[in-house]
Design a protein around this nucleic acid. Sequence first.
DNA 1: CTGAAAGCGCTTACAG
DNA 2: CTGAAAGCGCTTACAG
Lengths: 335, 335
Amino acid sequence: MKDVASVAGVSLATVSRVVNANHDVRADLAARVQDAVDVLGYRRDLTASTLRRTDRLSSTIGLIIEDVANPFFSAVHRGVEDVARARGVLTFAGSSDEDPGRERELAEAFAARGVDGLVIVPCSSDQGYLSRDRDSGTALVFVDRPPRFIDADAVVSDNAGGAKAAVEHLVAAGHRRIAFLGDRPSVSTATERRRGYREALAAAGIGAEPALERVGLVGSRAAELAAGDLLVAPDAPTALFAAQNLIAIGAIRALREHRLQRQVALVGFDDVMLADMVEPGITVVMQDPYTLGRHAAELLFSRLNGFDGESRLHVVPTELMARGSGEIAPAGARR
Amino acid sequence: MKDVASVAGVSLATVSRVVNANHDVRADLAARVQDAVDVLGYRRDLTASTLRRTDRLSSTIGLIIEDVANPFFSAVHRGVEDVARARGVLTFAGSSDEDPGRERELAEAFAARGVDGLVIVPCSSDQGYLSRDRDSGTALVFVDRPPRFIDADAVVSDNAGGAKAAVEHLVAAGHRRIAFLGDRPSVSTATERRRGYREALAAAGIGAEPALERVGLVGSRAAELAAGDLLVAPDAPTALFAAQNLIAIGAIRALREHRLQRQVALVGFDDVMLADMVEPGITVVMQDPYTLGRHAAELLFSRLNGFDGESRLHVVPTELMARGSGEIAPAGARR
DNA sequence: CTGAAAGCGCTTACAG
DNA sequence: CTGAAAGCGCTTACAG
């Protein structure tokens, strides 16, 4: 910038005004500055600019998700990116792998680099550690899961409702022995979905049966083993509710290994590529992760734009998509 | 930091030394500083630190891929993230959507925020615009596709080789009318795969037939339409080579719509979730996008660590995975 | 409308 | 080993 100033024969302040599109500069001076910028290939150092500016905004945000490579979270990521991009804001992304320590490290690292805001899929049991950042002006929005021990905006799917709809659907097909395959109970979406599952069973007058609930499943392989286990047990379930995308994949594998994909019903949570192309097609509770991400980013920017009202919780509805696997009647059913 | 200094009763310089783990500080002073840091909840401003430091390193890198939500690229992303994370480096990510203007905007935006390096899936026809950044010390690595008009490290899959293997596999099953479904010719992987396709045909003594080559397909819907078109044409192909993940999805859909999934062979490029669970299972040329990302990041950090040799091109092998769809013999074939 | 000067939060020669 | 001072690249009151 010093070079630009001397080439253009003006002061640093004037160059700064021109590159910041401040119009209180005489046209001929502005033109000279612009020429110098072009000749020298000058580009403003945004980090230095942030340091000195009154608003201290960096035009960057941080995104913490479980795994950037999980299709559900990468769709959330894209939603956030698109909204940020429209505002000239860049996105840091990081995977927590459901490790609270990692979540915190990422939040620290983002904050130390001066992000304007943080969009977080929380996995820790307490996000109170973020209050210092919020108090110092960092906007905070939680996505996919609500915050704990901190007051902030959040966008979540209707997890309990979606799970309830899934189980009601299976009950309507005649099932009474419906297994639940879920992620770790520390993951709030897993707990919510189990709650919906239990509520639907109770509403149908079906007693809870702990042996049919398998939780703490991490990844498709663990789900495959757990589902296989259930399928060969005496008094096996006639239907499976696989409450997460990778868990549904594992359940599909297990059903095929035991050649039960046309005997035992399956409803998954969250859609997966090709789920409509396997036979039978996989009935799923669809979420809209892209919209989740967009809404989260929009809440974030509304805070950065000065909105200062109460915390908002935005719930995105889910939708059951019947494709075949969820409409299989129980083996011994009379019709 | 000023506050920490006054609470600890030392100078700014001493605080700086302590928070930078410089050991030339007396133990009692260091302890006092540490206490003050803890009491005040002080966190160093890394952007200010970067501005002043001699090496000017920000411990951030930028990643430009086609789409953060495409499973292939999100796996590349994870590979980059993991290597960066191990070095305390954070990753900006952005989607170019195959738009050269967007690629350039992202590169500019990352550079303006002082990234130490850039990992890029190039989509523009000329990346010469990056030479200024490289000359000013930004490390540069290309991934998935080699750079054009700039000399830099790159990591790519063996696209031509993988495509050749796919077509040879179909030829071995007896096919001579093999269609090619590909992405835009501006995408170098698409061109390379078509080259491999043509080479394999030529090697088998099969003449090129332009009517069987459909390129410029963007997304699975376009591929589905193109494949449907081919399948109903007089003299339709007996096998499809779908040269990209979304294109393969479209081809699978088209085959099912026409109930030809057991009559017409299909080989895809790049693996997709559930590709082994549809019937028949989809034979694919597997790439290793996670490894692509890891290697790219490792080349980047070797440059940041001072390596100054010639540009390196790392080619990651592909592997054909036979699952059924690629082993279907042509309809009228004698055995 | 323009420029000289101060200062954002930090690091780094330099002296002691 | 420690501190006073300069300065990274920029923006912003403040005078004029």
